[in-house]
Structure formats: structure tokens, C-alpha cells
Design a protein around this nucleic acid. Structure first.
Lengths: 211, 211
DNA sequence: ACTTTTTGTTTTGTATACAAAATAGTGGCC
DNA sequence: GGCCACTATTTTGTATACAAAACAAAAAGT
């Protein structure tokens, strides 16, 4: 692993804090404060904020500062529609490229999800769930598909996270992975993408309830 | 139309030069030289380069400068696969949301394509063709889908442009739009996405020949 | 002649300084 | 007391300065 540069480090920390929910949508990010906090000048801070803005995690107004992106229900619906399509495409491609390794990685990620869900570890489940979907992205063998899928995942992270309120929510989510895996492992592209579509739709229904 | 800021202007100019082919893949972009050329300091240049890097149009090495992205055949194949999926998804959504306006806009863009093709105006056709696909993106009613589709279009621009060598190439391309429009206007999502898939596949076959 | 080391130059990354714009705060006015 | 204008302060955007790393070139050694 190559040592991350200063701005990559800042980028990672902020991304993490947003996905965890420490920085909530609508919050303003003050360059000067961040500079002081990270012990650097404003220059690398601005660079990191720029990159995060390009990823859609932050939004920037004209001479008006940078904010954690917040979306209306309408916008959220559009983002989820796009994510829905991309996830379905990933499932489709993955189903056609499965091999022993990718199957094992998906299964492994799923077992981590179940473990976290059963022990009621919310933060652990969030991580495991992301890893599960990442395993599917990786199974596509296509880093470009994986990249955009990951980007949407990050953008919607703060909103999706809210839907895991009770321990039962975690278990329900983990169990719904079971069908999805079966559909993808069928190696039939239509079955796989439809499986993902219904998984994503269910996820969005839950998400809309809490946003 | 809001007046573009300095860095937006730089971004637009560079994007244009890359898509036109004035700046070819692999070329290094010198910050100092660009600063001098645009009559600004290195700071806004760096910001623009950063944004373009985030969009995948440029690639940046560690302390090694910024280059116009160049892709191997393998990478090109992966990018086109992703683009293929996204375009198909756009066609799918657009077919479900068509209205009088979006139909008209798509037809209008197509007539511009035909006009440019018939008069052998290569540069004009490139623009018109982009506008045609943009009209489909717009017809999705989903700015997020449109955004990623546009991004892929920009990334692949320099490679796709090469395939239009003769006047006949333009005419062939414009005529192949005809079927695509019919498929999308059928308002059947499967027909629409399959139509786009075959259009994109044909496009990629031609692209691979010249890359 | 070829490799390797050393030196000099270019170029990136970061810090600091400054100008212009936006926001907040104060005082005057109705 | 509430509203508007004006000033002060903060904050963004850009320019400049400097340190460190990469690159190129020349010199020394084998």
C-alpha cells in the first residue's frame, strides 16, 4: 500500500466522517477551521474539498462555501433511480464473470454481514454491507463500473444509514442478501439484474421512510 | 446563463480541446505554461486540472504531473462496457418518460445530425451527435443519470472521434440513429435498452478498429 | 564505452499574502 | 419597535513565495 498523500488523507477522513454521519447533510465546511484541525494550510484543504465536490459528496456555491450535500425527496428519488440502474448493471455483469474467487468473496462478505447483524453491531453492519456490495462490484472485473457504483454508494450513504434503527433492521437486511446472492449466482443476467432491482427498490422504500 | 468563473472557463476550454483532439491522450499538461497561456496564476489552473482529473479526463501521477488520459485496449473495452450499460439504462428510462417536448428534442437533434452528415461537416457532426445523445439523457428527466452518461461520453470522446474518417462514416452513423429512435419511441423499456445496446456495440466495434 | 554518482534544473506541493465578495453587526430612520 | 443603509468582519478566490521531490545532465569510476 502506498502512503497516502496529505490531501488523500484529508479526503479519506472527511469521506469517513460523512458516511458515518458525524458530518450531516447541510453542514458547512470551513476551510480555515479544517486547515487548523489537520495542521496544514488552506491549500490542500481546498484541493480535498474540490475533489469531494466533484464526487458529489459535497456541494459548493459561488463564493458561498462548501456544504455536505443534502437532497430533497425528489432529488433522492432521482439519485436512487440512477443507483438502481447501476447496481443492476453490476449484478448483470458480475453474474456473467463469476469465478471461484469472486463467489467466495461475496459469500465471505455476506457471512460478515450476518455476524454483525446477529450481534446487533450497527456500525459493523454498515461496514460489512458496504463490503458486500463492493464484492459484487469487484466481481464485475470492471473498475470503471465499480468506481461509479462506489461513488453513488458514498453519495447516498448518509441517507441509507438512517434506515438501520433497530437490531431487527440489520437482520432483515442481511437476510435479503440471501436471495440476491442466489439470483447473481444463477449466472443468468436477467435474473441477476432483476434480483438487484428488487433489492434496491426495497432498500429505497426503507430509506424514504426516514428521510 | 451565469457568467462562468475563471476555473470553469479553463475547465471548459481544456475539455473542448481534448474532445476535439487538439490535446491527444498521453500529452502532459504543464501548469506553468497553462498559467501563462490563460493569464492567471497556477492556483486556478491546478483547481481546473484537479476537477478534470476527478472526471477521469485527465490522470495524475504522484508528483509526476497531469496527463490527458490514455487507455489500453483492455481499459477501453472496460470503459465502453460501462458506458454501454449506462447508455442502455438511459434509453430504458427515457422510453418510459417520453413526452412531446423530449420527442421533439430528440428528433431535432437527429435532423441536425443528418444535415451535418450530408454536408460532410465532420466537426459539426461530432457536435450534433453529442447533442443527440444528450437529448436522450435529458429525456430521462434524471440529471444524475445524465451526469454520469455525459462524463463517460467526455472520457471516450477522443477515442470515438477517430472513427469518423470518411464522409460515409458520418452518414452511416446518422442513419443508425433512425432505428435507435424507433426503439426508444416504442416506449417499451426492453426494446429501448436493447436498441441502445446494439447501437453502442456497433459504435465500439468501429472505435476499436482505429484504436 | 557503459554504468553509476553527483550536481543542477525543472516541476510539483504547500504555505503565506492579498484583493474581492459575502455575511454579520451596528446605527440611523421611519 | 421594526426596517433599511452603511460599516466592519469574515471568508472565498487568486497570486506569489518557498521547500521538497522528480528529472535531466554532466562527471567520475569501472
Amino acid at each position: 500500500m502506498t502512503t497516502p498523500s496529505t490531501v488523500q488523507r484529508i479526503e479519506m477522513v472527511l469521506t469517513e466522517e460523512i458516511s458515518v454521519g458525524e458530518l450531516t447533510p447541510g453542514v458547512r465546511l470551513d476551510e480555515a477551521r479544517l486547515a487548523e484541525r489537520f495542521g496544514v494550510s488552506r491549500t490542500p484543504i481546498r484541493e480535498a474539498l474540490n475533489r469531494l465536490t466533484a464526487q458529489g459528496i459535497l456541494v459548493a456555491g459561488e463564493k458561498r462555501g462548501v456544504f455536505v450535500a443534502e437532497y430533497s425527496r425528489e432529488e433522492l428519488s432521482q439519485i436512487f433511480e440512477a443507483m438502481h440502474e447501476i447496481e443492476a448493471a453490476c449484478a448483470r455483469i458480475a453474474s456473467q464473470r463469476l469465478n471461484l474467487l469472486s463467489r467466495a468473496e461475496i459469500e465471505h462478505a455476506q457471512s460478515e454481514c450476518l455476524a454483525a447483524a446477529q450481534s446487533g453491531d450497527r456500525a459493523g453492519y454498515l461496514r460489512a454491507n458496504e463490503a458486500f456490495h463492493m464484492a459484487i462490484y469487484k466481481a464485475t472485473g470492471n473498475p470503471y463500473m465499480a468506481e461509479i457504483a462506489t461513488e453513488f454508494r458514498r453519495r447516498t450513504g448518509p441517507f441509507r444509514a438512517k434506515k438501520f434503527a433497530t437490531a431487527q433492521d440489520l437482520i432483515d437486511s442481511a437476510e435479503s442478501h440471501r436471495d440476491l446472492i442466489e439470483n447473481i449466482f444463477s449466472e443468468d443476467s436477467t435474473t441477476a439484474s432483476n434480483g438487484m432491482r428488487s433489492h434496491m427498490t426495497a432498500s429505497f422504500v426503507q430509506t424514504l421512510k426516514v428521510n
